[in-house]
Simulated assay, not measured.
Amino acid sequence: MFPDTNPYFSVPHPFTAYLSLWDENQPLPSEMALRSMQSLGIQLLSEVKALEASCLLQLRHLDNEAKVVVDFLKLQSRKVDLVLQHVLEKEVQEGDKYQGCQFGGSGIRLLSTAALPLGRHVKVTLFIHDELVAILCFAKVTACMLSQEVQSDAQQVRLDNASLQYLVDLEFSQILDADVEQLVKASLNVQQKQLKQRKLARDERQ
């Protein structure tokens, strides 16, 4: 999917993305500018996730008797995340809506009814619903393939349009470090869930 120099692996998993072409005559935004472009919902979710990660890291040093407290706090934090995600879903998103089928810390793969121009940068708003991930970043179109493989890959997601024929690969060109970390954690979680599902399927067949 991505170049051999890609330091992160990617996993097949459905998600939603909104893309808009970036003006070729404009430089990519700086990290500070990228932060200022985030919607209120994305900003809140990012801040909450950062606080959660910091608190849970400190709680790991507590003894086993604190496990109940940790589990309770995780439950509460998930409730907050779900509420914030609901707020995000109500926001009006800029750009065209696409279905994603694969993601990782270095880039994403999308399904599209039309080819996207190679080498162009696009602004991406990315939502991975069940992993509670919502980020704003920029990516470069590195591949756009009209292939029969679309059908086999597309079976991993619920398609809204059976005529999807293009696989589009995008490599992140401007993304916050914290968002890369979110994607890496999400890809690991998805991989673990997939491995468990495969193991259960094998056990059921035996």
Rank of each mutant, 00 (worst) to 15 (best):
F2G: 07
P3A: 00
D4I: 05
T5A: 00
S10T: 11
S10K: 05
H13T: 11
Y18T: 05
L21Y: 11
D23I: 00
N25S: 11
Q26R: 04
P27N: 02
S30R: 05
M32R: 01
R35T: 06
R35I: 10
M37H: 03
S39H: 00
S39Q: 03
G41P: 09
E47G: 00
E47D: 13
V48N: 06
K49R: 14
A50D: 13
E52K: 11
S54Y: 10
N64L: 05
A66M: 01
V68I: 12
V69C: 00
K74S: 09
L75N: 11
L75T: 12
S77E: 06
R78Y: 08
D81Q: 15
L84W: 02
H86C: 08
H86G: 11
H86K: 12
E89R: 15
E89V: 08
K90Y: 09
E91N: 07
V92D: 04
Q93H: 14
Q93N: 09
E94N: 01
G95I: 07
K97F: 12
K97C: 15
Q99N: 14
C101F: 15
Q102R: 14
Q102C: 13
G104W: 06
S106V: 04
G107I: 05
I108C: 07
L110Y: 05
L110Q: 08
L111M: 14
S112A: 12
A115R: 10
P117V: 10
L118A: 08
V124Q: 03
T125C: 07
L126A: 01
I128Y: 03
H129V: 11
H129P: 01
A134P: 13
F138V: 07
F138D: 05
A139M: 08
A139V: 11
V141T: 11
A143E: 14
A143F: 13
A143I: 00
C144S: 11
C144K: 06
L146Y: 09
S147H: 08
Q148G: 09
V150Y: 03
V150K: 03
Q151L: 03
D153P: 04
A154I: 04
A154C: 13
A154T: 04
V157Y: 09
V157S: 06
V157C: 01
L159P: 02
D160E: 15
D160M: 03
N161D: 15
S163V: 01
Q165R: 14
Q165K: 10
Y166W: 15
Y166M: 01
L167F: 06
L167E: 08
D169T: 14
L170H: 06
L170D: 06
E171F: 07
F172P: 01
F172H: 04
S173W: 07
Q174A: 10
Q174P: 01
I175Y: 02
L176N: 07
L176T: 05
D179V: 03
L183G: 04
L183K: 02
S187C: 02
L188K: 04
N189P: 02
Q192L: 09
Q194E: 07
L195S: 04
K196W: 11
Q197W: 07
K199Y: 09
L200M: 10
A201H: 10
A201L: 09
R202M: 05
D203G: 00
R205I: 09
